[in-house]
């Protein structure tokens, strides 16, 4: 089973690596980060420069990057359904759910690459232009560079959970539509609709998008010298993201396994 999933995952990657848009979108994010010092200068003091990282990361990853990751994932299955290649794949000796999991893994990998790119670029800019010697206020060292790196790494790790939930969500939508464009539009539209309706409906605590930026915010809090790390929020993030991930994956697998792929 693992071998088949891994093979299907490698196949997915070999296909994605040959798509221009995979690189274009990464380039777009890189460009956004590269231009951000013009909007929010790297001032050369340690406080402000860690702040630059905290400023850039959620904007590049949770707004632009997340949108592109959703668009990438939303096209993974709907493209195959629209072109008909799904029929070729499903006549191969692989379970349908295994194929869906491989698609999910491809989406997650893309998200991971996007996150890594954002992280590397934002830190590199500050490394070249700024000062990374810890967060100091009023002469008092509040967080050393090592602590800031740890906080960021923890944020990186934690932020993967809601993003993974988003990937699974996009994949589920991808299985319910037959055109890549409508799939991307439905995914992004639902995301925005959820964001604007979740609070009036009182369900914001249960929607994974609420927690998308939270892990980076803890890093930002450190940059601002605020200690607000709370395990309760982290638990909510994990529970909500995990539930969304499982539900979305269930929807995606059910949708694919119960469907007939006739002409």
């Amino acid at each position: 089973m693992m071998g088949r999933i891994w093979t299907a995952y490698l196949v997915e990657w070999s296909k994605s690596l040959r798509l221009k848009r995979s690189y274009l979108w990464l380039l777009l994010v890189a460009l956004a980060i590269g231009c951000s010092p013009f909007l929010r200068p790297v001032v050369g003091d340690s406080v402000g420069d860690y702040g630059f990282i905290a400023y850039v990361t959620p904007l590049a990853m949770n707004v632009l990057g997340f949108f592109l990751v959703l668009a990438f994932t939303a096209g993974l299955i709907s493209t195959e359904m629209a072109s008909g290649t799904i029929r070729m794949v499903l006549t191969r000796p692989i379970h349908r759910w295994e194929w869906v999991v491989a698609k999910l893994m491809a989406g997650l990998t893309y998200a991971l690459i996007m996150m890594t790119l954002v992280s590397i670029l934002s830190w590199a800019i500050v490394w070249v232009l700024g000062d990374l010697s810890g967060v100091t206020y009023g002469g008092e060292l509040l967080s050393s560079h090592g602590e800031m790196v740890s906080a960021y790494t923890f944020g990186f790790f934690l932020s993967f959970f809601p993003i993974a939930a988003g990937v699974a969500f996009a994949l589920a939508i991808s299985t319910l539509t037959r055109s890549p464009i409508s799939s991307v539009m439905a995914t992004v539209g639902l995301w925005l609709a959820l964001d604007f309706l979740k609070t009036p409906l009182g369900i914001d605590a249960y929607i994974f998008t609420t927690y998308l930026e939270m892990p980076w915010q803890h890093f930002a809090d450190r940059c601002d010298g605020i200690a607000t790390q709370e395990s309760k929020d982290i638990l909510h993030l994990l529970l909500c993201s995990g539930t969304t991930f499982i539900l979305a994956l269930f929807v995606a697998i059910t949708s694919i396994t119960r469907r007939d792929f006739s002409r």
């Binding site: 959620p58 707004v63 964001d195 604007f196 609070t199 998308l212 930026e213 939270m214 980076w216 915010q217």
Partner: peptide, 16 residues
């Protein structure tokens, strides 16, 4: 302001 820029904007617009 403890949920990041996107979520904060959403909150400012919708949260009561």
């Amino acid at each position: 302001f403890d949920q990041g820029p996107r979520e904060t904007i959403t909150s400012m617009l919708t949260r009561k």
